[in-house]
Design a protein around this nucleic acid. Sequence first.
RNA 1: GGAGGCAUAGCUCAGCUGGUUCAGAGCAUCUGCCUUACAAGCAGAGGGUCCGCGGUUCGAAUCCGUGUGCCUCCA
Length: 873
Amino acid sequence: MELSKNYVPQATEQKWYDYWNTKGYFHSVPDERPAYTIVMPPPNVTGVLHMGHALNNTVQDILLRRARMQGYNTCWVPGTDHASIATEAKVVNMLREMGIDKNKLSREEFLKYAWEWKEKYGGIILQQLKKLGCSLDWERTHFTMDEGYYKAVINVFVDLYRKGNIYRGVKMINWDPQALTALSDEEVIHKETNSKLTYVRYRIDSDTEEYITIATVRPETILGDTAVCVHPDDERYAHLKGKYCFVPLINRRIPIIFDDYIDKEFGTGALKVTPAHDINDYNLGQKHNLEVIDTLNANGTLSEAAQLYIGEDRFAVRKKIVEDLKTSGNFVKQEDYTNQVGVSERTNAVIEPRLSMQWWCNMDRMAQPALEAVMNDDIRFYPSKFKNLYRHWMSNIKDWCISRQLWWGQRIPAWYDKQGNIYVAPTEAEAKAAYKAAFPDGADELRQEEDVFDTWFSAWLWPMEVFDWDKDHNNKELAYYYPTSTLVTAPDIIFFWVARMIMSGYEYQGKLPFEQVYFTGLIRDKQGRKMSKQLGNSPDLLQLIEDYGADIVRFSVLISSPAGNDILYDESFLEQGRNFSNKIWNALKLVKMWEEKTTQEGLSNSQDGAFATSWMHNRILEARTQIDHMFRDFKLSEALKTIYSLIWDDFCSWYLEWVKPAQDQAMSREVYEKTLSLFEDLLQLLHPYMPFLTEEVFHLLREQQEDLINRQLPAASAADDQVLRQGALLQQLISAIRDTRNKNQLKPKETVSVAIDTANTGFYTAAGHILQRQVNADSLEMATEAPAGWIALVVQTEKVYLDCKIEVDPEAQRGKMQEELEYLKGFLLSVDKKLSNERFVQNAKPEIIENERKKQSDAVAKIKTLEESLSLL
RNA sequence: GGAGGCAUAGCUCAGCUGGUUCAGAGCAUCUGCCUUACAAGCAGAGGGUCCGCGGUUCGAAUCCGUGUGCCUCCA
């Protein structure tokens, strides 16, 4: 078969994905093997694949494919999250484009549109994951609003309500005036904003004309002021104790209060207090029994209570009121000021702190076991630095606002009667029954709560509910797959989601939901900015897959992503990946060429082959052990680098050159077969990272009995150090001689002669022929003294003489050797010093001392060799 | 204001529990090669007071303190 010049991913990826999928390799059924389970962090149903997903899902696929090769029954559950606010915002936008106003629709009509939208676009991201090669168990696909899932969320709410964890109450929350819903603290993004600090003077209620000046970035909230506050120790204002002042424009008489909460240095040291519109002011108001005047409507316009500007938008009023304050004589000045402004993660609208009736879940009790599980490593975090962050949040945990003023989501199962009594029950019928029980003669129509749950109130059940937890808490699948093995996620949802899954896991299964949590980094662009849709700095992933192939995209994100550190993504990684895949492809081509040159006898290279195959085999053994350790620590990036170098450097650059038959010579069948096996072993190590390419090359190498995806990794076994050392010596000899050739400006075709003075002639019997070929030497002889006019060099303790067939300057040679000798002597001195230091010998670990001894003896031997060589020159 | 993280080659970053076979990788640079697997390549080379200062230690890029500069999260 004719192989193309370069690897063409487009031709193979779809083919293999379909093949694996059709063969059922991705589907898991409980059996006697141990399970390795991952539940995918469900992407937003509205989402399209971006870099973050690519990294996250590639990592999961790598872990899973490796586990599959290690004999686990692997199960990777896909799914999507209904993402209430994000999806609702999308649907509202779509309706607006269609000329439909959401507010004119009934709840049912709106939900019909939303479901249509979901059916049409909701599966896109999962399809895209197939392109990436993800070995997901598609038969287990879940959605957080599936019927069964919906019920589970309802049941959990009812249960927690009955346990007394849930209550309804008015608190200050983050209000999104665009989406018209409450948001959790975690859904608010604080952005640095250039604002104006406006200084306004309030007239004091006294006989003389006296004012107190405050500074505010939100002058429109003046209308809701119910006090002015100063620091008790502030001498400037001490005389105002017990006095009142007037809110400008509306002349409301408000007290001047004293509290050490005030920062004397900030602004004028006097703070206007607006309890309805600022959390700190609210707390102050509670403390000083201040009136709360809510001057804003839900949509961000001013309410009747404001008295002025009623119905006008808060930002328009912010400008307008400044003009009016100027007219009234209350305006003092305005300064530029930079502050943090909260905006909605989903709608980007500026958040309004607002007092609002919401549903709350108290987390204190559930937080306890969840905190302990992580602190005592029942659940391990990788990297562990996130434990601190987790502890900090968990030990200061606040009540969770679980209601959202939206339609898309699980509607809160609470019903109200006319008196406002609340009946929480899984179904309306049960709520009615409860009402009847309380009021046997009552005839109220119960009204269901309009709000739905925060998305995370469903997502926190994910690892259980994908195995049908709600139907049967002891079902067979749950018993087999739960707790799941590894959760792979980004650190920015450690509170939103990770912490809450741990809490629900202990609350409802009495068990951890996963054994390890691996946090990937955030992907940033070259300028270090987080990749986001708003910035438009995320590359089009499907285009990248189209252009480069999924394997190379996978390679590029993994090679640059050390555990838990942020990743600066640069397209040069794609080139590195492409070059790598071509390297492998070309190695395949080379090996396939040999197939025809193979003979049974294989006189040409069986000798070289014995040395080379043994060395390469042991290199693979050595690397396997290293890679095992790296995977154990989730150092996936380092493991990939190890495999990369093993294939490129050890296999392609050294091994293949060593066994390559000379021009017009036959290839030994035995060496050929061994080469294929070694190649297969390498492909297997790489397979989790680059599944398509490796499966393709694996099958092109020769007829296979099995597919690479299922090939089992052998148990780890130790490499033979002796063989590895000999290989390293051969490499050093070759490099040193090539370097000398280069420095003497020899052309590649010009031959040299080599003579070696060694105590180790057996090595040259085995590997001498390789050495000779690799340095283009016309002869290789054993010598005991330096031939006149030859260049001398020392490699380890081997004395090497080289005839470059040109004039060499003996002085220059001597100088170079002298230099090396000086360095070695200095080195030896430091080692000697260390070893003669009693405290070192007493304190250091035995293996360290052993190592120093070895360094000492090696240095002594090499110095001796160098000195002998020098004297011979 | 509170908490955490990071500062290593021109660039982007590895370097686990302290010990010159760990000062490393990729890219970039320089030299020589179109050596029939690969020029998207091959063979070599150069390049770093491991942010400043102080401390612990027989020994520190690695631990502690401090300063500076960036970043993130929270208020």
